[in-house]
Design a binder for these strands. Structure first.
Length: 552
RNA sequence: GGGCCCGUGGCCUAGUCUGGAUAAGGCACCGUCCUUCUAAGUCGGUGAUCGUGGGUCCGAAUCCCACCGGGCCCGCCA
């Protein structure tokens, strides 16, 4: 929960008392530039009242509210404008006492955010990278909002894909050369050969059975090759600022007997077909085990979620849109068959594809995260060297890396996750406009001003405040509203949109309000606004993994 | 066949949940501003029947229905 001086709530409460018909929806942040908060009086007007009467009543009731600068009636809207001093006060108050705006109340609820969970059969590519970026940003936002959050990776070491990787690796990889590249080659090769050779299918089946039975050699080998690939996935993710707290191996639920317990607890719903166990949802059969007795992913995922429900208040799963059906069937099992309610939320996203079509690890038509990052850093370096020929090599590297990581993350997180996305190099390597470098650049310029003026902002006076100063102040003040919405809706793109708006507001301020050459009173005030701005940019960029710089 | 998602200027998006002020940004294009704090920036301009057709409503990009286009799912794969 967020703690700050919530003027919007205050006004809404007063209006609620004043008008029985008032609905919370009637008062909102204004998006059209007419006001700070706007009160739509259509609903209240529904009786026989006329706007002037309503307005008069509001004026009378809000008389003497010192945080309000003015209230105006414009058509069917009553517009509230807050005074700059109060906006500054509310931000300053939290920053001085708590060091952050808004402050938070630590919530006892524990949340698991499961993301990435990509099969350990090859390096992570950008078709899937949306998953990690969404999950990581959402986890950070929920943590900032006051929840206790753990990120989780569900390692699929038990299915077909890993069994075929294992079969391929044993055939084509030397024991002492189990590198990600070699394993990936083996994985692609075995898939090609399986299309022509049926006997390989039997070998894969056998591996699955041995692994489930806990046969020592197979377990050891699979763990080993999965770990090799998992390490490389993790290192790729670390390069863009993502680390995951917990790794849970699918097979562990087989070993502990949890999958059997799930079967037991669902016993009354289970049917059989040739030895394979399944449940039904309407006309749909959902298989839990194969006829050879091995478990299916759906069963292992139920066990995994039951484990999460024991340790967390709720579980968030970031899943590709092709897993939507899986998610809905899971919800059905928990809600309808197990009487477990409202413990799980899904975030679905559409895979990133290339102009030539969708990416596939098996087919090899992918752009890996490593490749993307490498190329983006190179491009950033070119730009930095052109713009800042004065910088030393270390600074160039540092800036280029920060720019690249931030640009990649931002370009993905800022879009609505359900929107189809086609990756284009030209767009990925553009550092202008609505991008992370735009946000970073504005911050660097603000930092530069403070380096030159010093940071004396004592006893600022908020009189004769320039329009651009006030607009920026109001933007800054609104941060908690966007943070809250992003957390409640699990939409990190709301923070991204806020940051772009904030940056535009700041750029306007930068142009219109010189600091260095201002008179002493104005200067102190603007320095304080700059400090607020920097603080909130630091806070919000961190939620998206954007790496800000003092200089660029 | 059934289900879900997406469709907003030439291109990429915000706004859709919760209907309300001239549909908001970016890219590209044309023009402005570096003897005020970093031009990865600023300001202005050209450019939108909000996929199509109905409906509800005082009011629809937003809600409802139908259709069209794109994606995804309906497996003893994950």
């Amino acid at each position: 929960m967020l703690i700050f001086t919530d003027y919007l709530k205050d006004i809404a409460e007063k209006l609620g008392k004043l008008f029985p018909d008032f609905d919370k929806k009637d008062l909102a942040l204004d998006r059209t530039g007419h006001a700070d908060f706007t009160f739509r009086i259509f609903r209240v007007l529904k009786g026989k009242r006329n706007p002037e009467d309503v307005f008069a009543q509001v004026l009378k009731d809000f008389q003497g509210m010192d945080y309000i600068e003015r209230i105006t009636l414009e058509g069917p809207y009553i517009n509230f404008r807050l005074n700059a001093e109060s906006l500054a006060f509310s931000i300053r108050n939290e920053l001085e006492h708590k060091g952050m705006f808004p402050d938070i109340f630590q919530d006892p609820e524990r949340i698991s955010v499961e993301h990435t969970s990509t099969n350990p059969t090859g390096p992570i590519h950008i078709g899937r990278i949306r998953n990690s970026i969404l999950g990581d940003s959402t986890a950070r936002i929920l943590r900032r909002y006051g929840y206790r959050v753990t990120t989780q990776y569900f390692v699929n070491d038990s299915g077909r894909q890993v069994a075929s990787l294992c079969t391929g690796a044993r055939k084509y990889c030397m024991e002492d050369s189990l590198t990600t590249e070699n394993l990936l080659d083996a994985y692609r090769r075995i898939h090609r050969e399986m299309e022509e050779n049926d006997s390989l299918e039997k070998e894969v089946q056998e591996v699955m059975q041995l692994y489930e039975a806990g046969e020592e050699n197979t377990v050891g080998y699979i763990r080993k090759i999965c770990s090799v690939i998992l390490d490389s996935i993790n290192s790729s993710l670390r390069n863009i600022g993502i680390t995951i707290d917990d790794y849970t191996w699918e097979s562990s639920f087989i070993r502990t007997g949890d999958t059997v317990k799930v079967l037991d607890s669902l016993a009354e719903h289970i049917k059989e077909e040739g030895g394979a166990k399944y449940i039904t949802n309407g006309d749909r059969k959902i298989f839990l085990t194969r006829s050879n007795g091995t478990s299916l992913y759906f069963l292992r995922d139920i066990a995994y979620h039951l484990y999460k429900f024991q340790n967390f208040t709720w579980s968030i799963d970031v899943l590709g849109e092709n897993h939507k059906d899986h998610g809905e069937q899971l919800s059905y099992v928990f809600e309808d068959l197990m009487d477990i309610h409202e413990r799980i939320r899904f975030m679905y996203y559409s895979y990133v594809s290339l102009e030539s079509g969708s990416m596939s690890t098996r087919k090899g038509n992918t752009v890996t995260l490593d490749e993307l990052l490498q190329k983006t850093i190179e491009e950033a370096e070119k730009v930095v060297r052109t713009k800042r020929p004065d910088l030393d090599e270390g600074s160039v590297k540092n800036i280029s890396e920060s720019v690249a990581v931030s640009a990649i993350r931002f370009s993905i997180v800022r879009l609505n996750a359900s929107k189809q996305m086609i990756f284009r190099w030209g767009e990925a390597l553009n550092f202008e406009g609505d991008s992370a470098p735009y946000i970073m650049y504005a911050y660097a310029r603000a930092s530069s001003i403070l380096r030159k003026t010093g940071s004396d902002s004592n006893n600022p006076e908020y009189i004769n405040v320039d329009a651009a100063e006030r607009d920026l102040l109001f933007r800054l003040y609104c941060y908690p509203y966007f943070l809250e919405e992003a957390a409640n809706k699990l939409k990190p793109e709301i923070v991204a949109g806020y940051l772009l708006d904030l940056t535009k507001s700041y750029s306007e301020f930068y142009r219109a309000c010189p600091v260095l050459t201002a008179d002493e009173v104005t200067k102190r005030r603007r320095i304080e606004i700059l400090k607020f701005y920097r603080k909130i940019v630091e806070d919000s960029t961190d939620l998206l993994g954007i790496k800000i710089l003092e200089e660029m």
